[in-house]
């Protein structure tokens, strides 16, 4: 599975693994994504703009400065910089505190795993979910027309469900609502001056304000 001598990242769908990680038992547990060794700065490149550094607490206790130097090497090339921390000691509070602090101050996201399986799974998942929308962790919404309409329109502050019904029945369709003039909006019962302005601005102000 591991073709160790791949000079360049040849495919998008592969986790790139630094040569430094050779011999890390974690690699055995990456099974849901392909991986290959490559010459890279971080320990793992798990997507277009995501990378990960691996550290075990035991190692950190021996080399407290290691993490800091590794982060400094990364520079700013990645949007998501994960520090994957393997918790392999009992007395965890102090070392974890230090790692947390380092990660936070150097703009890295800390993820903790309690076993090699768990650590490996994080890498796999980040790779597999690289382009997945966040739907599964967002609020669920019913799929019927009215709930979708409500969902969209209530994003405008202070617009409530009654207003949605009012707007819908007076204009007939969402595109008509979006195109409505201030006067037309104001004619709807229950929609006061401020709501009219807020709705109108939402629909008619340009997405990007010209500076």
């Amino acid at each position: 599975q591991a073709s160790s001598s791949a000079p360049v990242p040849q495919s998008k769908n592969v986790i790139l693994v630094s040569h430094r990680q050779k011999g890390n038992p974690l690699l055995k547990h990456i099974r849901n994504a392909r991986w290959t060794f490559a010459d890279i700065v971080p320990d793992y490149v798990v997507g277009q703009s995501s990378c990960a550094l691996y550290i075990s607490i035991r190692y950190h206790l021996l080399h407290p400065d290691y993490l800091y130097y590794r982060i400094r090497e990364l520079q700013k090339n990645f949007r998501l910089r994960v520090i994957l921390c393997h918790i392999d000691v009992e007395d965890v509070v102090k070392p974890l505190h230090e790692i947390t602090r380092t990660a936070l101050l150097h703009e890295c996201t800390l993820l903790c795993g309690w076993s090699m399986e768990e650590c490996g799974r994080y890498l796999e998942t980040i790779k597999v979910y690289e382009n997945k929308p966040a739907d599964s962790i967002r609020e669920h919404m019913d799929n019927d027309y009215l709930s979708r309409l409500t969902h969209a329109l209530t994003s405008v502050r202070h617009v409530n469900k009654t207003d949605v019904l009012t707007l819908g029945s007076s204009f007939g369709s969402l595109s008509r609502i979006m195109d409505a003039s201030m006067e037309e909006l104001a004619r709807c019962p229950g929609i006061g001056e401020r709501k009219v302005k807020r709705l109108y601005d939402t629909f008619h102000e340009p997405f990007k304000r010209v500076t």
Partner: peptide, 11 residues
């Protein structure tokens, strides 16, 4: 993981 992917700035 999904949360982290969508909010890379989240610590």
């Amino acid at each position: 993981s999904l949360l982290v992917l969508h909010f890379p700035r989240l610590r």
